[in-house]
Amino acid sequence: MNILAIDTSNQVLGIALIKNNELIAELITNLNKDHSSRLMPAIVEIMEKTELKPEMLDKIIVANGPGSYTGTRIGVTTAKTLAWTLNIPIYTVSSLATVAMNGVFFDGYICPFFDARRKSVFTGLYKWENKQLNVVKKETNIDMMTWLESLKEINDHILFLSPHIHSFQDMITSSLVKNASIPSGSIHLPRPSNLVMLSEQIKESSVHLVSPNYLRITEAESNLLIQQKDEHSHG
């Protein structure tokens, strides 16, 4: 069983290859460069290194957001087209869960998040229990202050994990959240091999229906909604 896992939903470009339940290759770059020109060369390289041919793949797993819209689409488009062409199953895994998985043995809650601009974040709350990662608070796009406010009732430890931790560190430590743990180092970066473990918890997706989980409608749509509301209240 050969599995290819892809994550381009944030700045990290990650690819992992699993052969017979063993991680045989993992590639991560954390560079401010475009994913579109670099993803396929990276896949080709990792496949050559591991001496695998495309037709030897049995399963594709992709991180489908939330995260950068364009970045997520690049990974998702590549993954679903590969799965469709090779006629193999595809699994989609939350990009937040992929980061949360880095806290797998943490005794307490895990809060992964991504910067969603204007002080808002994509986030959710997780807990590792009964040998799996469980969702405690559903993934959402929320103002970080409001989110932290909602966490203050929790008496247990909370592990904050995010590639954007630096932008929010002060906000977290000065909030009313008790027992916030903020580790340092590369533990904040999503690892593509995490996708494989997470995919074991979920069902296969129907390839034509695979698309990013944006967690947010487009700006054009929200502007239109505001405009319609305005017209309604004035009209």
């Binding site: 488009t77 590549t78 590969l82 062409t85 090779l86």
Partner: peptide, 10 residues
Amino acid sequence: NAAKALSFAK
């Protein structure tokens, strides 16, 4: 990206 995936797969 879809074209690259097809091109690579086949």
